[in-house]
Design a protein around this nucleic acid. Structure first.
Lengths: 227, 227, 227, 227
DNA sequence: GATGAATGAGGATTCATTCAT
DNA sequence: TATGAATGAATCCTCATTCAT
């Protein structure tokens, strides 16, 4: 799990951050510290992802996260002021990962690529991402607790909403802003609803279900964009 | 909230139970007791609905439910063995209410009523129900905790899934069973995803959003039923 | 169980109490009430005996006693001010029953009946009594809770102690009072310790174990009375 | 109280564990931690001993134990999963202490030491132990609750039974196994019954009562071993 | 920085007892 | 008097967070 933490994403990020070793030696110490700190944070977020995905936000204990990360509870609190902050950081990380993942679809030429094609191309990676990082949905959909979880989702939601709205604006520039907003909200909500199906499905059913999700969204767009 | 508890449903049930007042006095006592017991249960479920909706399942305390119901914690445990049982009873009640609410749509003549019309007619009441009983979604969507919440949803989900599948079968009898199943699952998931939007929306936006939900589902059906 | 409640003892006692019907009619009503009350009390004590024997004093709930007696908890409190009072009444009843049971052995002629014969004759009925009324030991031995249980035992213990002391005095009139007292205390303690063995044993082992108990006590008496 | 915790037993154990201070520093940390943990456990068991002895098992609350030990309830649960586990650990500790205490009497030469002498020598320390650790009897005799207390006693009882049986076998090798078993059971029961007398007695009466207990057991053995 | 023991407020649940009917 | 629902203090146990080492 958290393929993006241990895999390309974090790897790449850390690499880039650590890379320029031509700087003055005076900065070496802090860099190392910082690097170690970031590794710790990555460890903790990775562990948190596992535990959140397995037990849900509410049932997850900070001790469980620390234990899974192989550190003491005290260390966890060196990096995060409280449980919510862990979830927030994780959500932030997921949001960043998705931004990066979907960057190629941010600026399409609507004349060259149909909406159908755009969706078809982006849905696959999105689904894969969520299957690899089930905690993302666990937080994304999460509980409806009053204070924190809802708020955690906010940034993730906002960015996804913006992405969808931009996509719609691209393919239906004439649509009034209000409809665009509503359309994006409904699309996001439906997508949020269907993703768990994809995440929990057997691997072999994934392509068919992805297709189905595409149909759902495209069917809606048909009607949304219909004059 | 829990309009159906204080409103038609429970009211009707109690009415019927209490009605034949010409019976011997011997039966009066148990009746009264039972009536009081059912009132208490309704009180508690109503209170639970409020608190679950406000705080989510995990953050809800049994003491809070009892306090909201105006009874002592001990009384709550006279009627429910534990917190889960309250949620389960509430879920059951919601499932029953929805069954009752949607009974008229169970046997439509597809020749006389279009799918569009059927959806248009049923979506309104459904949306109203969820706006009146926000805890239904709080449980329906709930967390992803391993043991209980997921299980609570099961009956509610199963019945809704069956309803959708039946509707689809009615309007697309030629669809293979597997596609029917998938279609119902996706529809349910999307509907589950969008409902929170409807529940949290300002009253004035409800009709437009309901329309939008209808479009979403119809758009999907278009593609699902397309040859 | 509580053979003496439903059997001869209570029957006889109530009979005697209720017997003299030659009194004025004005007293009839209260008598009836009192009779009903005593039946209730007997019901409750019987139930308490069962439950104490099964679950021990501490784990026994007043509701369980009431339920077993087939009455409401409120009714129980009409007859007993609290849980301890039930145990106390039960202990009292057991003490009375044992008094009655052992009355024949109160005034023996030491010249005619040897100590060995006296013990041999009385141990059997005592063992039978405890096997029939296991709650007696449950209270008699009971816990070592600070306030109540120890106190409950007091009367039962005192009477049994007195009986043993009297027996010893009968067969060893020359023994100084202090030794008599100590001897009775040790005998009582040993007997209290061994009885549970007898109560829990299979029926077929009872005679042998009774014999063993006799040997224990006689062996001690041998040394106690030795010059 | 718990003289053996603060006294020879635990003291000796810790001493041995801590002794070889020539080891590498790497092992120092865990040692210290372990030492602190064991001290905490000893503190808690000591406190539990006090409270069990004062209030009995059932009436003892975990918070009372924690308070008596000067720690928070949470700390108690760091070392023991629940109340029963505390009692079990205490029982285990008592059983071990008694084993250690009575080890010298495990292998006597019956030709050199009479049964009377063996008993006379071992009874004193046993009595002292129980006077110093009254909670041992509180657990040993305990209630008759169905699930836990009876089970707690089991190991303590089993070991004591075995000790008695071995002693009898030593001095009466020709006794059939069944009689040996019964004899040990009766001896144990009687001893269990009389010990509370010794524990609650004034210090000055202890020698006389110990003598009396010896007489009781020896008197029984006389008859048991008689041909 | 790291550790993990310690904290203590808080939550689910029980049960002796009361009281309206 | 009987009923049994209602009470609420008390219990066991958890876990987010802190702090001495």
């Amino acid at each position: 799990m958290l393929a993006f933490v241990n895999g390309p994403t974090i790897g790449r990020v850390t690499a880039e951050t650590t890379h320029p070793s031509t700087e003055p030696a005076a900065a070496e110490r802090p860099r190392k510290r910082q690097a170690r700190g970031e590794r710790r944070i990555a460890q903790l977020l990775d562990a948190a992802g596992h535990v959140f995905a397995e037990s849900g936000y509410a049932a997850t204990t900070t001790n469980a996260i620390a234990a899974r990360a192989g550190v003491s509870p005290g260390s966890l609190y060196q990096y995060f002021p409280n449980k919510d902050a862990i979830a927030a950081a994780l959500a932030e990380f997921y949001a960043d990962s998705l931004d990066e993942l979907l960057a190629p679809f941010a600026a399409l030429d609507p004349a060259a690529v149909s909406l159908e094609a755009a969706l078809g191309a982006s849905l696959g990676p999105i689904v894969r991402f969520h299957r690899d990082n089930p905690a993302c949905l666990a937080l994304f959909i999460g509980g409806n607790a009053p204070g924190h979880v809802m708020d955690l989702q906010a940034p993730l939601m906002a960015r996804t909403h913006a992405r969808i709205e931009a996509l719609l604006a691209l393919y239906a520039p004439e649509l009034p802003a209000a409809r665009l907003e509503t359309g994006a909200a409904v699309t996001l909500a439906a997508y949020k609803g269907v993703l768990p199906l994809l995440v929990e499905a057997e691997e072999e059913r994934v392509p068919a279900l992805t297709q189905e999700l595409g149909d759902l969204l495209l069917g809606y767009f048909d009607r949304l964009l219909r004059p």
